[in-house]
Design a protein around this nucleic acid. Structure first.
Lengths: 342, 342
DNA sequence: CTGTTAGCGCTTTCAA
DNA sequence: TTGAAAGCGCTAACAG
């Protein structure tokens, strides 16, 4: 069923029908009612492409799927997407996921823009000098960044306080009496990773604790690297009595390493993990319950969609910056260091 | 830059330029070359909406995002999407994720179809009499189902052998000497859940072991339910000496419950979990390594995209059915039952 | 309040 | 091998 046919059925012009359906004010109430009824009855809904072609707005925002096994696509992704969807449904917008072709991400972004398939773009997992941000800013294409960069040109972003999260966690451990603290975080280069390391370093330096470079690990997020790296760390003498984990998955591996070394978690070795909040993996429910730096990535997704809508509505991007504080949730996986029983 | 402008630059007609760019054979080789160069130079790429409007094909497939916290959106999602993307990039197709509005999923599907935003749809997590399948079949809209239903009308689907997976796992446990075997799987109603229970029951019945309804648990997939349900199961006398877990997350919780009851995993209590294969959570790397029924959901995603492309190319849907066998990978979390030390 | 008339940017006959 | 012209289905000025 197309507009023309619907209009003929009703004995009205396409224009009037279109106006009635799109909520224009000048339509007679009775007419509008009649039109709605008919549209309902015939299951009419405008051809999105024709509509878009005519109005020039797309009604979709884009996100590029990395082709390789990037950290940008992990267990947090579904939560982030859920958050986006929640918000986008309010605006009747879709989310277009475009696979990047031939591993050339920038080209994929350019194509996405020039082919006019989306109104705006969401970028995640930036590096400090992210070239996607540079390119999109230059191209003046609307986007919101999840994370931050060091790029000066104004652009919209929302980030969590990663430095603060790790600074707070490390400080807390130092308060508890720990002096050998390690961190196992995500790959180097990513802003969040760099910021977390900064926060960690600040906390140590502030309290006059020397930074041991062997204790700073940057690796892919997985239980496996958590396990192996923690095993390595615990084999040093002295070994760390506390470990900061960049993700819940990493933490799971670290837990195993601690147990397999015969240490008790939360006593001989403490762990604090960053928690994106997954409905299927609950820190408070672990044994012992896990101390975390918590920040809902679902909420971030939802908010970012909202911000992008504001950008699309013309709000200047220099006004759109948000840093979300991260909560330190104290539970049982962290405590004062206890000397190993021998 | 639009086609018209590009054509003017080149002193050619839109027609010729269009043909050159779309690989029509009748274009002079030199002309085609010149056009490609220019397109490259100006970063021209066709307005997708205009193009779609003209040719009637969209170049995108759709997937509906459940609005509520459905099991359809979990840690496996990112892997499934990666698989889809991998394949779709071969065909230069996008993936459109449409949020369902007002919790009315069927309406959202109808809107997605009638507004012509996608060429085909992928459905996941069906129930036995899934109404989405019924509706799309009726509407003759191309789709591929990940999973199966009991609906007779022909439609394309790919499923893994869930019954076989649990039958195999349960049989193996019986072979090892277990007589009290429980299962903690996903919510009732979903086909995969029903099939797994069927397989489990078959294995028990075949060997003359009575089915204890208390030992069959259907719950949301999460470490938390795994933990609580396993604790409950282990408090019975006699308690199960083996547990089948429907997901890795569930298994994590079960592991904790076993440890917190003071049992040794793989000895006093065995666990076999279904593993979708996550890069960030590795069964073989656990301690003890986890016995699993393994099937890569990423591969399934990739294949499903391929199948959908075939459906779009007009292949009859009655030819498009695949059941993938599930591998039982023996590791250390399952072994002969060992009487608890007291 | 409703209708007529041009487009939106591309593809595709049909003619040359 | 190339071009002119007619749509694809909708919206938006402009009239009435």
């Amino acid at each position: 069923m197309k507009l023309k046919e619907l209009a003929e059925q009703l004995g009205l012009s396409q224009t009037t029908v279109s106006r009635a359906l799109n909520g224009y004010p000048e339509v007679n109430k009775a007419t509008r009612e009649r039109v709605s009824q008919a549209a309902q009855k015939y299951g009419y809904s405008a051809n999105a492409n024709a509509r878009r072609l005519a109005i020039g707005r797309i009604g979709a925002i884009g996100i590029l799927m990395p082709r390789d096994r990037s950290e940008r696509f992990g267990p947090h992704t579904s939560e982030f997407f859920s958050g986006l969807a929640e918000q986008l449904s309010q605006h009747e917008m879709d989310l277009l996921m475009s696979p990047s072709i031939n591993n050339d991400e920038l080209a994929a972004y350019r194509r996405l823009i020039s082919s006019k398939r989306v109104d705006g773009i969401i970028i995640t997992g930036p590096t400090l000098m992210d070239e996607r941000v540079a390119m999109l800013t230059e191209a003046k294409f609307p986007f919101v960044l999840h994370g931050r960069t060091n790029i000066a040109a104004p652009h919209a972003w929302l980030d969590i306080d990663n430095a603060g999260a790790f600074r707070q966690a490390a400080s807390h451990l130092i308060d508890l009496g720990h002096r050998h603290i390690a961190m196992i975080d995500g790959l180097k280069g990513h802003t969040f990773s760099e910021h977390r390391e900064m926060g960690y370093r600040e906390a140590l330096v502030e309290r006059g604790i020397a930074v041991d470079p062997r204790f700073i690990v940057h690796e892919r997020f997985s239980d496996e690297t958590g396990f192996h790296e923690a095993q390595r760390l615990l084999s040093y003498t002295p070994h760390p009595t506390a470990i900061l984990a960049g993700s819940m998955m990493t933490a799971l591996g670290i837990f195993r390493a601690i147990r397999s070394k015969g240490y008790e978690l939360g006593k001989e070795v403490s762990v604090i993990a960053h928690d994106d909040v997954f409905p299927y993996l609950n820190a408070s429910n672990m044994v012992p319950a896990m101390t975390t730096t918590r920040s809902s990535i679902r909420s971030a997704g939802s908010r970012i969609a909202e911000l992008l809508v504001r950008v699309l509505d013309g709000e200047p991007v220099e006004n759109i910056h948000e840093i979300w504080p991260v909560e330190l949730i104290l539970r049982q996986s962290s405590g004062p260091p206890v000397a190993p029983r021998r």
